[in-house]
């Protein structure tokens, strides 16, 4: 039984539904927010096992959010996957530099997303 909790930080309702559906099918618990600052709050109280972070968001962007998560004692060890609509090498480098565990370019296939999460959390099918 998979009891992992995923925090999704994304501002597009359709994509939130997409990710929720994909992950809930595998019994992940998904918490979603569309705001980077709220995400930091939720991350430190809810203690998710992994954070999915979109780059283009209002208030503070994904990179900034990631930097703050990695600076915070309570959240720094939670692995982060960055989701970005830009896929240049520059973006991937930037994601790894701010401490992300992985990078997924949009558009992505739900299966790819699920497999990456399962790999990072070492979940066997």
């Amino acid at each position: 039984m998979n009891n992992n909790k995923i925090l999704l930080v994304e501002d597009e309702p359709d994509i939130i539904r997409l990710v929720k559906f994909t992950l809930e099918q595998r019994n992940f618990e998904v918490v979603a927010t569309s705001n980077g600052l709220a995400a930091i709050e939720i991350a430190s109280t809810e203690k998710p096992d992994l954070i999915l972070l979109d780059v283009m968001m209002p208030v503070i962007n994904g990179y900034e959010t990631c930097v703050r998560l990695k600076k915070n004692e309570k959240t720094k060890s939670i692995p982060v996957i960055i989701l970005s609509a830009k896929a240049q090498k520059k973006e991937v480098d930037r994601a790894l530099r701010v401490g992300a565990a992985d990078f997924i370019a949009k558009p992505f296939s739900p299966r790819e997303l699920r497999e990456k999460i399962e790999k990072i959390l070492s979940i066997k099918n």
Binding site: E12, I15, K106, P107, P110
Partner: peptide, 23 residues
């Protein structure tokens, strides 16, 4: 424009893939 075009395409790809994967 790049961001705004890619966002709907992400949804299209995502849901189509889900259906194709039998989910």
């Amino acid at each position: 424009v790049s961001h705004d075009l890619r966002t709907p395409l992400t949804s299209i790809k995502g849901y189509v893939d889900l259906i194709l994967d039998g989910d």
